[in-house]
Amino acid sequence: MAKSHPTDPTADGTPVIALRGVTKTYANGKSALRDVNLSVPEGDFVFLVGPSGAGKSTLIRLLIREELATRGKVMLEGRDLARLKRRDVPKIRRRIGIVFQDFKLLPNKSVRDNVAFALEVTGTPRASIKPAVERVLRVVGLAGQADQRPSELSGGEQQRTAIARALVHDPHLFIADEPTGNLDPLISWEIIQLLLRINEMGVTVLMATHNADVVTALRKRVVGLEDGRVVRDETGAAYHRED
């Protein structure tokens, strides 16, 4: 039932993510990615899988331009990240929502203020901050806990706060790097449901994960990395290769 996914950009519309022959070699000589080709069209939901050290987080760091590719091209919505001007990098990042295994919340701010922070530090006018924050808190189901601090929340609620913060700029691409790595299976499912809803709203989702149950159950597109190479790229696939 798994079928091969074309890695070339679809004929109509620019892919949200396009990697062409991307190699990333870190300063210490370690090659974390080798000749990677990947194309993700708008609205796709992609699981990025592979053993620890395969290069998943490295690929994500290239997408948010935390790192630059050593060779090859990384394109985001048709824009070559290597040729992006320094002052345009923040603008690109506002089109990407990103969450991590550790939630990266500010411990001394409430849920509401953590989310509002993303708007404040990007110069959003005061008047439009409050409604935007309330809206995303409703989307992630945290409207009732808006005044609590991260230490007063469960792991799942903390991750939902991080997701709300990532959503508040209306991103076109949502990236999650092992978002359920610190959560128990039941709570993990809640987070996955939330990501599926975000995808249904039209946002392209890329999720790096080790969670085999989730990947296999959902039958989405699966991109497998091993030792820095793409070893599989299938839609409707399971966590492990089935052929």
Partner: peptide, 12 residues
């Protein structure tokens, strides 16, 4: 780090 991730400009 968080400021950078959410797209804050250098000035901010």
């Amino acid at each position: 780090e968080i400021m950078r991730l959410v797209g804050a400009s250098d000035a901010f």
